[in-house]
């Protein structure tokens, strides 16, 4: 009971390595979130258009993302497509692709919801003033939508960071993998290291995600 293996973290550069591992996850999620927000805005606007074929395609896309676990998508891209098409992609690229694929659909749906929540009169007034469709969206609808969207997209960031812990499964060395390596390396010297190290990883994720989700709650209350 005396030794819970926290001391392992202070040996050499272990703690620094854990933080670097965490940064790998955060980096992948930040890149994916950036892509998701940009493309998500476009997809979300497309979702509100009244074209049947467009609606059908986007609906199928959304449903695929909703139903398939991200881990399955990761496997399909990293192991499946490389096999079928014979190309060579790094695990990081596969991860960013999958998380963006997922994020764009989620973000698109959020954008669609926010646009739908804007009263119809805003569109009608803009048209009555002689604006065309592009101008209406650009100057009237999107500015209002974005304000409602910001808390929701911040939430997406925390979800993204939490989901990126899966990339360990396709061989990316992130915080959990580093944790396992540290535990393995100290198996003899400190058999209880698993407790200390995994507790710290647990805490690290919490420290990263908690402030972000508090911010989202705060903004949602303030801007709702």
């Amino acid at each position: 009971m005396a030794n819970l293996g926290i001391d392992v973290l202070f040996k050499g550069t272990n703690f620094l390595r854990l933080l670097q591992g965490l940064w790998v996850s955060v980096e992948i999620s930040l890149v994916s979130v950036a892509i998701s927000i940009l493309l998500g805005l476009v997809v979300g606007v497309l979702m509100t258009f009244n074209k049947l074929w467009l609606k059908a395609i986007l609906k199928i896309y959304l449903e695929i993302v909703r139903i398939m676990p991200q881990m399955v998508l990761l496997f399909i891209v990293y192991f499946g497509t490389t096999r079928v098409f014979g190309w060579d992609i790094t695990a990081e690229a596969a991860a960013i692709f999958v998380f963006s694929f997922w994020g764009v659909a989620e973000m698109g749906d959020l954008v669609r919801g926010s646009i739908k929540s804007i009263p119809k009169i805003q569109f009608e007034s803009a048209y009555a003033l002689g604006m065309d469709k592009k101008q209406t969206y650009f100057y009237i609808i999107l500015p209002q939508t974005i304000r409602r969207l910001i808390p929701l997209s911040i939430n997406l960031i925390t979800r993204m960071i939490k989901t990126t812990s899966l990339v360990m499964m396709i061989g990316i060395v992130e915080v959990l993998k580093v944790a396992q390596q540290i535990i393995e390396a100290n198996r003899k010297a400190s058999p209880n290291a698993a407790f200390g190290v995994f507790a710290v990883v647990f805490l690290l994720y919490f420290i990263v995600c908690w402030p972000i989700s508090r911010l989202a709650v705060y903004l949602e209350k303030r801007w709702a």
Binding site: T158, L176, N192, A194, F195, F198, F206, C209, W210, S213
Partner: peptide
């Protein structure tokens, strides 16, 4: 707050690998 802000994978690792160390 704790369970919404950590990934399931980390929670499972903690329950499965860390808790046995404290009995």
């Amino acid at each position: 707050e704790i369970f919404r802000n950590t990934p399931l994978l980390v929670q499972l690792f903690f329950i499965y690998f860390a808790l046995p160390k404290v009995g």
